[in-house]
Simulated assay, not measured.
Amino acid sequence: MSSLPVEPPSVTSPGAPPATLAAVRAGVPEHGRPPKYFQVKQKIDAVLDELGQGTPLPTEREFAERFGVSRMTVRQAIRELRLEGRVRRSGRSTVAAGPKMVQPLILASYTEGVRRQGRNPGRELVVFERIAADEALAAGLQVAVGAPVFHLERVLLADDERVGLESTYLSAERFPALAAEFDPRTSLYAYLHAAGVVFADADERIETVLASPREVQLVGTTPALPMLLLNRVTRDRDGRPVECVRSLYRGDRFSFTAHLTVEEPPGSRS
């Protein structure tokens, strides 16, 4: 039985990010017949490179006539471009989206990260309540089960665009004045820093999820849009947990970067 020929892998310059590999960009399967919608998607993607942010795209009918395909094929191509963050809805139109915001995985506030990219951060308060810690929260914050905990839920904004949803939990016994003193429209990290808290380290887990119906409504997205979920426990210099945070970011508007180092094996310095 003969096998299909396999082309050798593309060679790139040292240091090139994996996303720039030619094989990834081409997206051509081994049999050499990419789906028609994918070919249209590549052509529309090239059109997007010539459009400025917020510029309306040609209509589905115009694209269909230009590329000689059905409107259904165009619709599927645009749907994928929307999931990738290349286009977005604006009223009744589909427009070219700007570049994704790139957040480094460091101990810094959302406010700082957005401002570094020339965007204006903002927040809309959803919930600011006092609850009793369940077993999971008690373990994360190292408090007794049933201890009072502040729950702060806010919609995250960038230039007034809804891009995420964040829930933060803090011990009410450690921060008793939080409800009276903190303005939920501002940076919580700035408030905690002013209160004398010095962050030292955190454990964070990242995964992809689909938003719940409630989250879809709050963030203003669609149920099919992949979301990036970050769960974090942050500690101070004494090793005491300061906060437990659940952050949900739109996958079409955010990406995250991390600087990696080699961990020395145990006993390597002995």
Rank of each mutant, 00 (worst) to 15 (best):
N231G: 06
V242T: 06
R130L: 14
S212M: 11
A96R: 08
R130V: 07
L4M: 11
A180V: 08
L210V: 01
G68V: 08
L83M: 02
K36S: 04
V126M: 03
L228K: 14
A133P: 02
D134P: 08
L125V: 13
G196R: 06
Q117F: 11
S109H: 15
L51G: 01
L83D: 07
E263D: 08
V114Q: 07
L152E: 04
L141K: 00
Q76E: 05
R116K: 15
E215M: 09
Q76F: 09
T111Y: 05
G267F: 05
Q42I: 03
Q142S: 13
T234V: 13
H31L: 11
V47D: 09
Q217W: 03
V197H: 02
A97N: 08
L81P: 06
A138T: 12
Y169M: 01
I106S: 02
V155Y: 06
Y37S: 12
P58N: 09
T261H: 10
V40I: 15
E135G: 00
A147S: 15
K43C: 07
G52K: 15
F128W: 08
R92Y: 12
A26W: 12
Q39K: 13
P99Q: 11
V28M: 13
V11G: 12
R82N: 10
M72W: 03
Y110N: 00
A19Q: 15
Q103A: 11
R253D: 02
G220S: 06
L260S: 09
F67C: 04
A64Y: 09
V74Q: 11
F175N: 04
L157I: 06
V24Q: 07
L178E: 01
F67L: 15
D201A: 01
K41Q: 15
S187M: 13
L248F: 06
G85E: 02
L51T: 01
A194N: 13
L218V: 03
F254C: 05
E243A: 10
A195I: 01
F254S: 01
Q117W: 07
E153I: 11
T20E: 14
F175E: 03
G146Q: 06
P18L: 12
V262R: 05
P184Y: 03
M101G: 08
L141D: 00
G54V: 09
